[in-house]
């Protein structure tokens, strides 16, 4: 039991991102409304951003900028003492991708609403079936 609690506490960042990811996947798969699906998609992407950012963190580490780091720049010289900046940089790109995907998705939703006057997936499917 203690071992399980220890794993749960020591690796809480993984539990957080896995839970967020599952919430996102659930929303994409199970929700009927396309806007809710898109929100789920965004939660999924954010979960992965959280994962990347959390792996760059270190206990007691400072920011990787010499001039603005703690200890007037002396601590940000050794790799031991500052956070890994690479995952942050990667996630800047991933955020841009997420924003672009969201933009395209919302534009498609507008088109969809203009054609079907609803965003509920089952109602759209009914309309398609009736049209055939």
């Amino acid at each position: 039991m203690d071992a399980i609690i220890e794993i749960a506490i020591a690796k809480y960042n993984y539990w957080m991102y896995i839970s967020l990811m599952m919430i996102g996947l659930y929303a994409i798969i199970a929700k009927n409304n396309f806007v809710k699906k898109i929100i789920g998609m965004n939660i999924l992407q954010t979960a992965i951003i959280l994962f990347y950012i959390s792996i760059s963190a270190k206990r007691g580490a400072t920011i990787p900028i010499i001039r603005h780091a703690e200890g007037h720049g002396h601590e940000a010289v050794n790799a031991m003492e500052y956070m890994n900046p690479l995952p942050h940089v990667l996630m800047l790109t991933a955020i841009v991708v997420a924003v672009a995907t969201l933009g395209v998705a919302l534009a498609l939703t507008v088109r969809l609403y203009a054609r079907f006057e609803t965003l509920e997936e089952d109602e759209i499917n009914d309309q398609i079936r009736e049209a055939q």
């Binding site: 998609m41 992407q45 995907t101 939703t109």
Partner: peptide, 11 residues
């Protein structure tokens, strides 16, 4: 079709 592609493609 595109929205469905987008959701699955993003996953």
């Amino acid at each position: 079709a595109s929205l469905r592609y987008l959701l699955l493609g993003t996953i």
